[in-house]
């Protein structure tokens, strides 16, 4: 299972590189979504037991996966979606005021 931890680190660093180095505002918002997805994957990965099944007990099973971390991941998905909605509304208001979506030009306009 070590390769999945490497994928989590790769997705996290890819998202942070997108936030630092892109010039378009909507691509920065997409970078935030990528960071959010990698952290939800990490939450599910921590609670895994080798050979276990899903935590729904309609028959008697031997090894069952941890149910607490899956509940936390469900909460995290909903909160991530709400924060993305508020960010997109701010992008719409910026575009109506300045007329452009390029962060170099927005920094140079004064007043």
């Amino acid at each position: 299972m070590e390769i999945l931890y490497f994928i989590v680190i790769f997705l996290f660093c890819l998202g942070i590189y997108t936030i630092i180095s892109q010039k378009n505002l909507i691509k920065i918002v997409i970078g935030f979504t990528i960071v959010e997805s990698s952290l939800i994957l990490l939450l599910i990965l921590v609670g895994y037991k080798p050979g276990g099944t899903a935590p729904i007990l309609d028959k008697v099973y031997q090894i069952v996966v941890d149910p607490i971390s899956q509940a936390l991941a469900l909460t995290s998905i909903v909160i991530g979606g709400s924060v993305t909605a508020v960010m997109l509304m701010l992008v719409i208001k910026i575009q109506k005021r300045y007329g452009t979506l390029n962060i170099d030009k927005i920094r140079k306009l004064h007043g």
Binding site: P55, I56, L57, D58, V64, A71
Partner: peptide
């Protein structure tokens, strides 16, 4: 896992949490 169904009555353990 061991006492969830008996104390809450729901089979789905994630819902009971």
């Amino acid at each position: 896992i061991s006492k969830g169904v008996q104390e809450t009555g729901a089979i789905n353990l994630v819902t009971s949490v």
